[in-house]
Write a protein that binds this DNA or RNA. Structure first.
Lengths: 334, 334
DNA sequence: GACTAAATCCGAAACGTTTCGGATGCTGAT
DNA sequence: ATCAGCATCCGAAACGTTTCGGATTTAGTC
């Protein structure tokens, strides 16, 4: 491993000069710079970023919290999509991404704050943590630049990027209402998710404006199985329901399969609309009416904001677009 | 930021002792260790891994090359799945993962070797690079611990993990043969992919054993659109074809949609079998017969081997299982 | 009481870089 | 001849750790 010292020695200058030459400072003669660059090339020199990080107190890396990064998440692709988005933006900069795991047992008691400090990341994007996570406050109030995805909270050093779940759900509600539905239930995620609260709010708002209210709300925990169970539950308690809004496509798909088991089918017997527009949504039969969100964009914008902050900008909030995708799982109420 | 020095000062010992105490060395009195640990806690100390890395010459991070990590890859989930697998294994260790981008323009001329050196990763898992990548040899012959996924090459410090594509394709061939097909074509990926070569070999082997040979082989570049185009091409040149083997599900899905455009349908008019068993495969209609490979396992095993190597083990090769999933897109030849 | 061995501690160097605060030499003006 | 100003260079400290080689104390043995 050749270092800056080696270059200095063989080029006959000091390490200071080598450093300054390689970093493009002005107070080094063009001739000596040439020589230095050349010997660096000959010695096959690559800078040691670790040493640089140590003295600069900047690591040029951003952390990505992937707490619940378990196999389950592979089906809906949420985390992976935002990861891809983060990566896509970061690849245009000189920042690298390091993945943080918090699910390992020994690290469990470490706070995010400690994790970040320890790995010396310059900033961090956080996703998928619960509203009641004890460490959330700590990071928001902390001094580590941070951007939250789908968690609408701000702090001195933390901004967030999200979609407008309230309006998205509102539009889903309007859609169902427009089709003439009045007996409507909802399968929500769980109470510790910000998006669940928002989607419930937005959907209810639409119903309320029409003088209606939800027949029933079940929590399906965002899982396919939870969607199945919730649908069964709803159908038994309210057999007259004609439409169900699901807070995630995965749950909607579960609901769809449960419906099939009951010998009924969508959209004839029941209109179903989902949320997320995951990859499967348009391939499943019937193709799912759902509100699409730009998950890749979430990650991309998160990285953009974070790196912006590292370059001196203030944290903010950015809302990425969503869109109601009307497909085959919802139809006019008979 | 409190350092080891601060602890030393307030605990009234030397930095050496603090270091040794915190790292569990034996030659420090239990009483002073207690004191040190306690003051460390009080001062909210977290070790600076960068400084540690600098002196230890180990960064406790592994790199993951995600060269073609573009949106396209989001649909088939290959890279993301292996990423998830790598992460899953790594989360049980004290290694972190850093994502390497090579698609950024300025980094383009840097070799993988330089990238690894620069970021000081202890090892790297590489996926998705072409057979003719000029830097592949460099990394294989190099001294950086490395494991390749789906690239069957070994070196002094490089092992690989893969599936048995030859047998997988062979089984696909046997399946089609068993259904009575004799007019068979193949849509392959591209010539610079190891898996393409292997899948072609395996499939041809099956046909040859039956005294048959391929009607036609098209390259679809692993994309949905490429699959469409290839199918159209094959159907026009060999209208009598009854079965097509695609080297990826994405291409198979493209082929399926092209078939539909022609007013034909699978499996009645044409049996189609894919490869990969991506998430969509079982949801698409008709559900795709395909050979499933454990992509998550690929990543998991890659991480396992790499970290094993970092702990002193020798590089090896590990083959993860595959399985022919017979679904609805293939049927008896009429 | 002297010597050995063990237990416990510490000073200082090292890792590879950046950067502050000069030092040196040269040019041209006075 | 002196000096200001500039261009070019460099020494040394600093970043926060780990670790080598030894120093000091204590306990045990004869």
């Amino acid at each position: 491993m050749t270092t800056i010292k080696d270059i200095a020695k063989t080029a006959g200058v000091s390490v200071t000069t080598v450093s300054r030459a390689l970093n493009g400072y002005s107070d080094v003669n063009e001739a000596t710079r040439k020589k230095i660059v050349e010997t660096a090339r000959q010695l096959n020199y690559t800078p040691n970023t670790i040493a640089r990080s140590l003295v600069m107190k900047k690591s040029k890396t951003i952390g990505l919290l992937v707490s619940g990064f378990i196999r389950e998440s592979l089906k809906d692709n949420f985390m992976l999509n935002v990861l891809a988005g983060v990566n896509d933006f970061a690849s245009g900069t000189d920042y690298d991404i390091v993945l943080f795991n918090t699910n390992s047992s020994k690290q469990r008691e470490k706070t995010y704050h400690q994790l970040c400090r320890e790995r010396q990341v310059d900033g961090v994007v956080i996703q998928g943590i619960k509203t009641d996570d004890p460490y959330l406050e700590e990071i928001i109030d902390g001094d580590i630049p941070c951007v939250l995805v789908d968690i609408p909270k701000m702090g001195p050093k933390t901004g967030y990027v999200s979609t407008d779940n309230v309006i998205g759900a509102y539009e889903a509600g309007k859609h169902l209402l427009g089709l003439g539905h009045t007996k409507i239930a909802m399968i929500n995620g769980h109470d510790q998710a910000f998006v669940s609260q928002e989607r419930l709010d937005g959907f209810q708002k639409a119903l309320n404006e029409a003088g209606l209210s939800l027949l029933q709300v079940e929590n399906g925990g965002f899982s396919e199985e939870g969607g199945r169970a919730s649908l069964l539950n709803i159908m038994s308690q309210h057999p007259d329901v004609t439409a169900i809004f699901c807070a995630s496509d995965l749950m909607a798909i579960g609901a769809l399969s449960a419906l099939k088991e009951l010998g009924k089918s969508a959209p004839e017997d029941l209109s179903i609309v989902g949320y997320d527009d995951i990859l499967l949504a348009k391939y499943v039969t019937p193709a799912l009416t759902t509100v699409s969100q730009d998950t890749h964009g979430l990650g991309y914008e998160a990285a953009k904001m974070l790196i912006g902050m590292l370059e001196g900008k203030q944290p903010g909030k950015t809302i990425v677009k969503h869109e109601l995708m009307i497909r085959d799982s919802s139809q006019q109420c008979l």
